[in-house]
Write a protein that binds this DNA or RNA. Structure first.
Lengths: 144, 144
DNA sequence: ATTAAACTTAAAGTCAACTTTAATTAATTG
DNA sequence: CAATTAATTAAAGTTGACTTTAAGTTTAAT
C-alpha cells in the first residue's frame, strides 16, 4: 500500500507561500474562509488544495468580493453541487460589478496620463500657459 | 463693466453634481482637499472650478491615491509652479503602482472567467467531472 | 535537557475613509 | 411670518479588514 505523500504546511510556511500573514490566516479561518487540518497536538496544517483555494480566493478578493461574499460562497460550496447555480450567479454579479469598475479605472488612468502630459506640455512650452487642464481635456475630447 | 456670472453651488447641490455627500465634502475640506468660498453668513459655496477639481480628485482617488497623498498634492499645488516637479513625480509613482495593480486585476478577471467557464463546463458536460479547477487552469496555461 | 522559534487562544487595538449625532442658525416656501 | 428645508459645528461612531497583545504550549536545534 503506497500512500501519496502530500506536502503539509504549518501556518508559517503556508503564510509564506500564500503571501498572507499567520494572523490573517487565523482571521480567515475564524470567518470560515478556510479550514486547515490539525495535528494531534492541535497545530494547524494546510495542504496543496488549500494553496489552490487561497490563490483563487485572493483573485476573487481582487475583483472586489468582500469577506462576507466569500463567506457566502464557501458556505454554498460546502453544501454541494445543488448550489452551483447560486455560486455562478454570485460570481457573475461580481464579474459585472468588476467590469463597470474596470471601465472607470481605465478612464481614470487616461485622465491621470492626460494630466501628466499637460504638466509636461506646460513645462516644455508645447501647451500654452493660459490653457487650463479642463480646456485641455475638452480639446482632447476626454470628458468627465 | 460686465461681470461673468459664474454658477455657485451650495453644498447640497455641489454634493449632487459631484456624487459625494455633504458630510464627505466637509470632511475633505477639513483634510484640506478643497477650499470652498463662504457667503457673508458663513454658508459654503462652490464654483465650476471646484467641480473640475473634485472630478479630477476622484480620478486620482480611483487610481489609488490616498487622502494623505492628495493632501500632499494640494499642498504642493498651493505652493505654486516651483513644485511642479514634485507633483509630476508623485503622479508618476501613482501611475506606476496603478499599472502594476491593473495587471493583477486583469489576471484576476481572467481567473474569474475561467472559473465561470469551468462551472458551466461541468454543468453541461464539456468538462470532465474529475478535472479540478487547478488542472483546468493548467490545461489553459492560466497560472497563478 | 535546555532554549529559541513557532505555535495556540481570545480579546483588544488599528487604520482609512467616511458617517452619524446633536444642537443651532440660515434660507426658502406657502 | 410661520414652517419647512438646508445649512453650520465639533465630536463621537461605524465599517471592513486586518494587526497586535498577552499569556501560554509545542516543536526544533544545540
Amino acid at each position: 500500500m503506497d500512500e501519496k505523500i502530500e506536502k503539509k504546511y504549518r501556518i508559517g510556511d503556508f503564510a509564506e507561500v500564500t503571501g498572507l500573514s499567520s494572523p490573517t490566516l487565523r482571521y480567515y479561518e475564524k470567518e470560515g474562509l478556510i479550514n486547515p487540518h490539525r495535528t494531534e497536538n492541535g497545530l494547524r496544517y494546510y495542504t496543496e488544495q488549500d494553496v489552490d483555494w487561497i490563490k483563487f480566493l485572493l483573485h476573487l478578493k481582487s475583483t472586489g468580493m468582500t469577506i462576507e461574499q466569500l463567506k457566502q460562497y464557501v458556505k454554498w460550496r460546502a453544501e454541494g453541487d445543488s448550489t452551483i447555480d447560486k455560486r455562478v450567479e454570485l460570481l457573475e454579479e461580481v464579474r459585472s460589478n468588476f467590469e463597470k469598475e474596470f471601465e472607470n479605472l481605465q478612464n481614470s488612468w487616461t485622465i491621470l496620463n492626460d494630466k501628466l502630459d499637460w504638466y509636461k506640455g506646460k513645462v516644455n512650452g508645447h501647451i500654452e500657459d493660459s490653457e487650463s487642464f479642463a480646456a485641455y481635456l475638452k480639446r482632447l475630447n476626454h470628458h468627465e
